[in-house]
Amino acid sequence: MAYKVLIVDDSPVTRIMIREMLETLGHQVVGEADSGRGGIDAFRSLKPDLLTLDVSLPDMDGLQVLRELRLKNPLVRVVMVTGNDQKKVLEQAKAMKAGFVAKPFSVQDLANALALAMGAAPPHP
């Protein structure tokens, strides 16, 4: 199944990497944002099925973005894509039922996290 995905990440390199992986998997990237506030605004206007979200953003951290989104959209689906794989960050993401992919990652890692976040069984490689 193809999902409409919004990418929220300050790094243009990571945005390219995620976009190409998502397109390889047959998903549609409906937008990109390089800040937390920009991501929240883009989510409201573009209504994607899912967001990929960085932890370190210039204006607020990704977990704050997720909390704010969940206030009005409790079912928003999110995969955190980040170099920050500290235990506490993982625990917080898990508590908020967000998927998690730590850098460096493969297309398969991303596919598995997307499938889990969308509530489907992960695809076989």
């Binding site: 370190s56 170099g83 500290q86 506490k88």
Partner: peptide, 24 residues
């Protein structure tokens, strides 16, 4: 640098039971 910097502080954050959120 972001990815390797995160790796550098991970052990410290995990050991202190906290998260260290690095800036962009």
């Amino acid at each position: 640098a972001n990815v390797i910097g995160q790796a550098l502080v991970k052990a410290m954050a995990d050991r202190f039971g906290s998260s260290i959120i690095l800036s962009v």
